[in-house]
Design a protein around this nucleic acid. Structure first.
Length: 569
RNA sequence: GCGGUCGUAGCUCAAUUGGAUAGAGCAACAGGCUACGAACUUGUAGGUUGGGGGUUCGAGUCCCUCCGACCGCACCA
């Protein structure tokens, strides 16, 4: 073992060294935060920090001057000099080129920690994350595909980052829409015998309710046929709700998403949660009576107008559900995150108002997923539940596959409206980024298989990460650098609630691996340079570990082989 | 009308939250396999970040104002 590896600093220690230098130079009371990021251009160096910019105003000096001074002072430490091959302050940034041994040490850490690599320190914060939620009146549609993908990936990444995350889905099974559902099902049921039986104006169109009506006929026969609607509507609605929820759960599961809790609003009602939440608001002086109704002072938190929670006749409004559910969640979690669809942005103010009222300002965080436009080639598919021409999530899965759909949905930033071209996703399946990434993983698996056939001992040696010094090529070091970003990527995704960075990161890993694969052969050098072959295979192992982990976070499979003929959707 | 979100390469999207010469993929063009899977790789081209003002060392990002797209604006859910 080379003695130089012992003297090297870790990335954290390096950051601390630069922070100390800044503190001492400018008489700061505390250490300034020093974060390293990849420089804009690779020729600038391996890592860079912009710490000088943050100090410029207070020090009344140009960032470039500060950067130069900090770099010089930090380099007076012999351990920093041992780790840093070159420091070049430019335009206020401090660019650092690190010695190859630093990267070998980073690679060794990946191989040692395996699937645990990238895990953050346990955080004290408990997070309730609600997403995907849909009305139990029909099948899941494309927007749920988006929120399910984003929510599941965010949940997994938050857990990896060290948070205690609890995922929830709310079933909207109270109020007028259940009544509408009941009337719609009743009409469909009657139409099985009387095709001219009138369908309600505001009923839910779509063939799925016909299927449910047929289902009821299969179970109950003509039992409801001569029962007045008013007497059986609620039963029919409940039956339809259960069928819909079961199907929603099945599709979500097929999509790779499960929840810690499926919360029925009706059961919240039955358990007295509405009364509890409302009573607490009253205690806190956040509500008042006017015209016989009970209002919540949401305008105090920026809402356009105060909101009614209980009508004059005593029936709770829909907002009462939000009150009950969020009061419940706030008691179970430090932070409540809701991922909502695009038509819910009016709720943000009133949800903030609830957090304020309960003395937990800022504890409710709303992530709004923007709209999705579906296209099939040049044709825009207008999806209107009213018109009944919906494209279900299940149809999208059937058409492009779970992996492609999830990768695509996670890939896009949540607050960007987007266009999803089904035709393109299907036709270009071979050029789809997800296949590119999966191919990278399969290629590594194949490489390991081939080396194992030739020389099983070498595979064991690579896995044990003995001598990594032979890794000196630019593409090799670039790949290690990329893999070493993983803990930072995880922390960043968790902090910024930005899961869309993961697919891009996966693509970057795959691209760096493919370049490495082209440049750094393993099998052909097994006899001529066994040490080099071993070190390269070790790098392939580490790549596989990180790549598989990123794909797992995205809900995408990491295949050992890919079959060209069946690889297309 | 009021409020909100958003306009980035031909197309689909990034830009780590105010930092370096705005980056990727697809599409286009030109190269690379008798070494491990060519579903790969190397390169070229493509931009007044919707328009115009402002704030400061520095703006795609912040403020104002137009233009355009979408979403909300119930004692519906």
């Amino acid at each position: 073992m080379s003695p130089t590896t012992i003297d090297l600093l870790t990335l954290d220690e390096l950051g601390t060294a630069f922070a100390r230098a800044a503190r001492d130079l400018y008489g700061l009371a505390t250490l300034p935060p020093v974060a390293f990021e990849a420089p804009r251009r690779p020729e600038f160096g391996d890592i860079a920090t912009n710490v000088a910019f943050g100090l410029a105003k207070a020090a009344r000096l140009a960032p470039a001057v500060i950067a130069g001074a900090i770099a010089e002072r930090a380099l007076s430490d012999p351990r920093v000099r041992a780790t840093v091959a070159a420091a070049t302050p430019t335009a206020g940034f401090i660019n650092l080129r690190l010695v190859p041994e630093f990267w070998h040490q980073a690679l060794r850490a990946i191989l040692t920690r395996g699937a645990d690599y990238g895990r953050g320190e346990p955080q004290a914060e408990r997070i309730s994350l609600e997403f995907g939620s849909a009305n139990p009146t029909g099948p899941l549609v494309v927007v749920q595909g988006r929120t399910l993908s984003i929510g599941d990936t965010l949940a997994k990444t938050l857990r990896l980052a060290g948070y205690d995350v609890y995922t929830e889905w709310i079933i909207n099974d109270t109020g007028g829409q259940m009544e509408t559902l009941g009337r719609s099902v009743y009409a469909r049921y009657r139409q099985l015998w009387e095709p001219d039986f009138p369908f309600p104006e505001d009923g839910y169109p779509g063939d799925y309710l016909v299927a449910i009506a047929e289902h009821i006929r299969a179970v109950d026969g003509e039992r409801w046929r001569h029962v007045p609607e008013a007497q059986c509507r609620a039963d029919l609605a409940t039956f339809a709700r259960d069928v819909n929820v079961r199907e929603q759960q099945a599709v979500a599961a097929r999509f790779g998403v499960t929840f810690d809790r499926w919360q029925s609003e009706k059961s919240l009602h039955d358990a007295g949660a509405i009364e509890a939440g409302i009573a607490r608001l009253a205690e806190l002086g956040a509500s008042y009576e006017k015209d016989g109704a009970l209002w919540v002072r949401t305008t105090r938190s920026g809402d356009d107008e105060d909101r009614v929670v209980v009508r004059a006749d005593g029936r709770p409004t829909y907002f009462a559900n939000d009150v009950a559910y969020h009061y419940d969640k706030l008691q179970r979690a430090d932070r409540v995150i809701d991922i909502l669809g695009p038509d819910h942005h009016g709720y943000i103010a009133r949800l903030n108002a609830l957090a304020d009222a309960y003395g937990r300002s800022g504890a409710i965080e709303v992530l709004l997923a923007q709209q999705i436009t579906l296209k099939r080639g040049a044709e825009i598919i207008s999806m209107s539940k009213r018109a009944g021409n919906i494209v279900t999530l299940e149809e999208i899965i059937d058409e492009v596959g779970v992996d492609a759909a999830r990768f695509f949905f996670v890939m896009l930033s949540i607050d960007q409206p987007l266009t999803f071209d089904l035709q393109l996703a299907k036709e270009q399946s071979n050029d789809n980024p997800v296949f590119y990434v999966q191919y990278g993983h399969a290629r590594i698996a194949s490489l390991i298989r081939r080396v194992n056939e030739r020389d099983p001992a070498l595979v064991d040696e690579a896995r044990a990460a003995g001598m990594l010094d032979p890794l000196t090529g630019p593409t090799e070091l670039a790949l290690i650098r990329r893999l070493a970003e993983f803990p930072g990527v995880v922390a960043g995704v968790a902090r910024a609630r930005a899961p869309h960075r993961l697919p891009k990161y996966a693509r970057d890993i795959a691209a760096d691996f493919h370049a490495f694969y082209d440049k750094s052969p393993v099998l052909p050098v097994v006899e001529s340079d066994r040490g080099l072959a071993t070190a390269r295979l070790a790098l392939a192992f580490a790549t596989q570990t990180v790549l598989a982990h990123v794909l797992e976070l995205c809900g995408v499979s990491a295949p050992e082989r890919m079959d060209r003929t069946s690889g297309t959707a």
